[in-house]
Amino acid sequence: MTVLMAGCGDLGTEAGLRFAAAGHRVVGWRRSPEKLPASIEGAAADLSSGELPPIPADATAVVVAIAADAPTEAAYRAAYVDGLSNMLDAVQRSDAPVRRILFVSSTAVYGDAGGDWIDESTTPEPGGFSGRIIREAEELLLSRLGGTGITPVVLRLGGIYGPGRTRLIDQVHGGSALIPAESRFTNRIHRDDAAAAIVHLCTMNPVPAPVYLGVDNEPAELGEVLLFLAAELGLPQPPSGTAESRAPAGAPKASGEPSRGGNKRCSNALLRSTGFEFTYPSFREGYRDILAGVGVRYP
């Protein structure tokens, strides 16, 4: 099987390495293809530009793993809507035997659910421009591929953490972490499990469902995660409060895009029903593995 990774950042590269390790040919598109490992055939591409390399003639699966260049509405639209549209144009112009296109999405399309459980049957209600634009891209994928014989798959990932993604650890270690005054559930997935899920959904024999939630087994309150990290680091418990309570007097209040993730509990039952197994079923295993690898940074 030949897999085209349209977008080969950290997550796309890890997924590409796993495809290659399984014996598949992998072609990776990114702006700086020279940064890709040898097992991924790199090609220079900017999805938002519309000027893309030819689709590999024997490509049977495409993974679209896009990231916006900046946290702005324009950057999100250029990456997710324009980039995906250009990718689909290229596939539909080609004669490649593509049978499956997986789009890496986000649980941000659900917005805030007040701590309730949600799954693939829950109607998306984005709370900000990021979720709204990513949802628009999902709908574009599903509508464009209808009747083409190509199976669309949307993988809505929770907050990705892992190597190089240590924001919460850094906050606890640096003393800036705050336990929310009110309950706030968070959902996450280790980078390696996210990459493994991409490979699994692209290679499984049964035809996959249109949408899957890519989160680990245990939605957790943010405060619980911060307390766990403090204990693992041997540090005092972070204080409780809000971001505003730590802002300097007279500082402007944040506005615009709501806090990422919202307050919801995402179920991964559908993904697990396909036979997928997590290496890091909860934040505890994942963060312990990260700390074991970078402990020298956190004396």
Rank of each mutant, 00 (worst) to 15 (best):
L4G: 04
A6P: 02
C8Y: 00
G9D: 00
G12N: 03
G12F: 02
E14R: 14
R18I: 04
F19A: 13
R25V: 06
V27C: 07
W29E: 11
W29C: 08
A38Q: 13
G42S: 05
A43P: 02
A43G: 04
A45G: 04
S49K: 04
G50L: 02
T60R: 15
V62H: 02
V64K: 00
T72D: 05
R77N: 07
G83C: 10
L84I: 03
A90I: 09
A96S: 03
A96P: 01
V98S: 04
I101F: 01
V104F: 00
T107R: 01
A108G: 03
Y110I: 07
Y110P: 06
G111T: 08
A113T: 13
G115Q: 09
W117K: 07
W117Y: 13
D119Y: 10
P126N: 13
P126C: 05
G127L: 07
R132W: 12
E136H: 12
A137N: 07
G146N: 07
V153E: 06
L157K: 02
L157T: 06
I160A: 06
Y161F: 08
G162L: 09
P163G: 06
P163S: 10
G164N: 11
T166N: 14
L168E: 06
D170M: 06
V172K: 09
G175I: 11
S176A: 14
S176R: 12
L178W: 09
L178K: 08
A181S: 05
F185D: 05
T186C: 12
R188W: 14
R188N: 14
I189R: 08
I189D: 03
I189E: 02
H190P: 04
D192P: 03
A194L: 09
V199T: 11
V199F: 08
H200C: 00
L201S: 01
C202Y: 00
P206H: 09
A209P: 09
P210F: 07
V215M: 10
N217S: 15
G223H: 01
E224H: 15
E224R: 13
L226D: 00
L227R: 15
L227I: 13
F228Y: 01
Q237K: 05
P239E: 14
T242S: 15
T242I: 11
R246N: 08
K253G: 12
G256F: 10
R265F: 03
N268V: 07
L270Q: 14
L271A: 12
F276V: 08
F276H: 05
T279I: 15
T279R: 15
T279M: 15
S282A: 04
E285C: 02
D289M: 00
V296P: 11
